[in-house]
Write a protein that binds this DNA or RNA. Structure first.
Lengths: 253, 253
DNA sequence: CAGTGGTCTAGACCACGGT
DNA sequence: CCGTGGTCTAGACCACTGA
């Protein structure tokens, strides 16, 4: 290729590109602005499209870019802070704007979940599908597993499944009283099933938050929530949604 | 390619491959076992190496695989749970085994950090480099920013920089009394500088934990810690390091 | 429809680890 | 030194969006 670079750089091209583009984003582009298409950009930098894409991938991972098939690549807004540790997250009333029940049914608990719940693997539990919307965008999809034993007062008046039933389960769970929570955060990839709802392709990176709800010394429920890693910053603590300038590349010197 | 698959699958090859490999890992491989090399695997599945690599990348992201140049691809152990919200994380005595001070110096605070600390951008603050070791492996690198105003009692007896000075800063910070913390977790990529320490290539995914320490109503310090996303599960809450079966693909139905 | 990003291929060479 | 994964290329075709 050309003789543009004169550095003795053992630095990969895509990484250098990432840096160059990152700086360009800071200085020459504004949020929402659309970048030149990948073929043009690759040509402009004198690299193959695959290499250019590797750099774009990084920037998307860091929440700097947003790419949509058929549309283009745009400059992403700073990540939104979503509060994960609010105390009354599951109270249907208080959290109506944060979580909405999509569906509910009785289903077998996966082995990992069954273990945490202390029920037999494959035992049927309530499975609530919930969705979290923030700033007009779905930022998280969740599966909430509630063993029948945790909601003894649940009547059969409501339908056996559906959103209404789900809300009834939540109400009853809340009525039992929850005295503690326990969370873990790890990196994962979107299941094909959640991909559409989160408007991402299968395999896109997500932050998986596993929550255990305790009641009277036992694990009353387990929630597995997947947050879009590109657009979300999970906040914990007393001051939930303080706006912080985004931290693209882990931290600067 | 061959006529092995008979599905009308609009599913990408790499995604299908990921699933197949994932199941194979569950049933036919044990932790630490070394997989066939990428060229062989690609040939075996009748795909290009790039496609095979895309599948491996996914599995590595999910913490199922570990790839090392010059060595090979091995089956990764379940992610280790690292407690992030323990109350006395910064007490030098109690956390000696978790965090170790690598270095310390006075340096300009990056804009984002300066904003949180309430100091002028570029103002000189104590910058502590710390490292967290778990199960004999470095799982996190951290930069702790402490403005001079937060450690008024700091004497000039110790060296102006170096690990010893860092420990002195920590001691003094602890002596001032911290009355609260505030955390945010987001996805990022390893800086080139941290890459070596974490034994990862630049750009590898990390969980960036930004912590603000409060004292007497003001932000006394800010820490930016980057955890290896492939090997770590961040835990919050009362029961820190309970072993949970890993959750590879966000969650199973 | 044209234009975008997403997938896939079949090569090549490089950087690194261990022998 | 060889074998490994990591980078890079130059193409091709597909899936989706919006005019």
């Amino acid at each position: 290729m050309g003789t543009t670079q004169l550095e003795a750089a053992p630095e990969p091209k895509y990484w250098h590109l990432r840096t160059v583009l990152s700086e360009a984003l800071d200085s020459e582009f504004s949020v929402g602005e659309i970048l030149p298409n990948e073929r043009d950009l690759a040509a402009r930098f004198g690299v193959a499209r695959a290499t250019l894409r590797q750099a774009l991938e990084q920037l998307e991972l860091e929440g700097r870019l947003q790419r949509r098939r058929g549309v283009g690549t745009t400059v992403a807004p700073p990540r939104v802070g979503v509060a994960v540790a609010s105390t009354d997250e599951d109270r249907p009333g208080a959290s109506a704007d944060a979580w909405q029940v999509v569906d509910s049914a009785l289903d077998a608990a996966p082995a990992a979940v069954a273990g945490m719940l202390g029920v037999r693997a494959g035992e049927s539990v309530h499975v609530l599908r919930r969705r979290r919307v923030s700033h007009g965008q779905t930022v998280a999809a969740e599966l909430l597993y509630v063993p029948a034993a945790s909601v003894p007062g649940l009547t059969a008046i409501d339908a056996p499944s559906g959103p209404a039933r789900g809300r009834a389960v939540l109400r009853e769970l809340q009525r039992q009283g929850l005295d503690g929570q326990d969370r873990a955060v790890e990196l994962g990839s979107v299941r094909a099933e959640d991909a559409k709802e989160l408007d991402r392709l299968p395999g896109a990176p997500v932050l998986v938050v596993t929550t255990r709800y305790f009641s009277k010394g036992t694990t009353a429920a387990v929630a597995v929530a997947t947050y879009r890693a590109d657009t979300c910053r999970l906040t914990f603590g007393d001051t939930p949604s303080v706006e912080i300038h985004h931290t693209p590349e882990s931290h600067a010197s």
